[in-house]
Design a protein around this nucleic acid. Sequence first.
DNA 1: CTGTTAGCGCTTTCAT
DNA 2: ATGAAAGCGCTAACAG
Lengths: 341, 341
Amino acid sequence: MATVTIRDVARQAQVSVASASRALNGHRSVTPATRKRVLDAARDLDYVPHLGARSLSAGRSNTLGVVLPDLFGEFFSEIIRGIDYAAHRRGLQLLLSNMHGDAEETAAAIRAMRGRVDGLLVMSPEIAPEVLNRSLPGGLPAVVLGSRVGGARHASMVIDNHAGAVGAAEHLVAEGCRRLAHIAGPAQNADARERERGFREAVARLLGDDAPLVVPGDFGEGAGAAAARAIVAKGEIDGVFAANDIMAIGCLGALREMGVKVPEEIAVIGFDDVPIARYVTPALSTMGIRIAELGERAVERLVATIDDPASPPAEPEYFVPQLVARGSTRRHAAAGKPEAA
Amino acid sequence: MATVTIRDVARQAQVSVASASRALNGHRSVTPATRKRVLDAARDLDYVPHLGARSLSAGRSNTLGVVLPDLFGEFFSEIIRGIDYAAHRRGLQLLLSNMHGDAEETAAAIRAMRGRVDGLLVMSPEIAPEVLNRSLPGGLPAVVLGSRVGGARHASMVIDNHAGAVGAAEHLVAEGCRRLAHIAGPAQNADARERERGFREAVARLLGDDAPLVVPGDFGEGAGAAAARAIVAKGEIDGVFAANDIMAIGCLGALREMGVKVPEEIAVIGFDDVPIARYVTPALSTMGIRIAELGERAVERLVATIDDPASPPAEPEYFVPQLVARGSTRRHAAAGKPEAA
DNA sequence: CTGTTAGCGCTTTCAT
DNA sequence: ATGAAAGCGCTAACAG
């Protein structure tokens, strides 16, 4: 029980703590003999280094701080998986803090990481970039996920929501839909706003429709179902683009209950490609983000920044969602590419 | 950029670091005047305490270590959510390490937490309890999830896999199934073994079947599909209990492809109640564990142990899975409780 | 190659 | 109520 420290090891091995430290850390300037003595002592005493102390003295914690919003369901676990994978490979630990709250709480969470992490991964779509930027401690390397940070003081990785939304609309049109509707996400969510904007632009351009039906939503399943009812009530609509997969799935369920055939009568496409999308019936078409990959890439960039703090100041990096066409939009008998014709 | 320390605050406020520390931490023995000076200085300098240093000197990190297996898909995100929620409420941070590997790696992960956490939450179904027990640092409070730790040196919370499996079999029989098969999990997984054992016992007791069909699996979707084919090939079977939901879902898909009607011809039930279960068609019946709740409860227990290290030594706490009956087993027209008749 | 000496930034006796 | 000083456990110059 009596926690054994490096001093105990040193004493037992009959060397100074300095030598013990060197031996333990594999420095070259140690006689094989001493090294062995130290290592043996460590083993005998079942010594485990105190990483907290090491961080303090070495000025490096080998830990990455991760601040995520709670709102993401499967998105959350996927991105963590990617982050964890990349961090793990590099022998880095993760200090996690997923947010249930507002900007203030996020700022607090970020502050709470001071002195415990070498860098920060922050994802915070509901908070204005400037606010976020202000909360980020000056000296600490950080990578911001999802939102574009104005000042560009930090690296950022953003999902090209606009392009994704355009892609979704294009796909629906290619599949023969002529009256599109959109189920929007929360108004205060920047990603959601961009998706709506992309949708409106694409619909105007492709179909000449300047006032498409846009039903408000909140990224939740229930909102998707409610939207489906509104859409059916309105009539005419033969293609729906939901701002995320969860709402698309809610929509699918409600359409089925109402006896509307998907994709024949109404085609539905989502956004994200969460794992569930493949399992619903019909399988959900969606604009897929390789979420885990995004997480991995973020770690890579963060590590690069940590290793070279003077590195080039942060071109935002874009992730363009890719169309994943599944049953919920496949209206053509053949699966061939329509564009090829 | 020049990181501001408590000394800077002290100097600016014209007091000693000791007083600064006291004021900052809300100790009572500080003149309101001094306190104000210190707090103002801290604000002016934008001081953020160095939590790593604080941990070292105070001997408390306000951080919980979490070691989880990577193998759990949605299970993972749910339990993290529960843990995070409970930790967050108590102002605790989470140091995360999810394992991709073997016992050795797990041991390393656990060791790597020394000196950075006040306690440990470990879930490690693939590793023998004794090995685990040995890896756990002596002085560190810990709660083990999932496996029953032999020595009982640590608190543990276990899922009653056996009872869950029995419940699943009973439900299938109550729904009128007479020939049951089981899709088993990985042989080295303790949870999986218990589920199989429970299934065998129940089938023997309820149907007098001492050698039911048990198809091997690995908790993956593909294994579930393969098992479905084996089961259909064998014929006769009218009820399937899969050791987890993912395999059950794979099974459902394969059955549909083969044109087998679920639940009319074959009823299917899973284990876990991952979020996806509600979304497949037909919706998957399953033995549900309130995963997030389990995580929360684990934190509670861990905190209790940390606060009172001399507390009673670890009765294992059981979580009994509850039947969640959905479409994949509902063979009666009415949804009323069959037992009531 | 090894030991001695300073800290890392903070909390906490122990005096005053 | 406040300050001086001693460490938490470890690493990193700096001498030898």
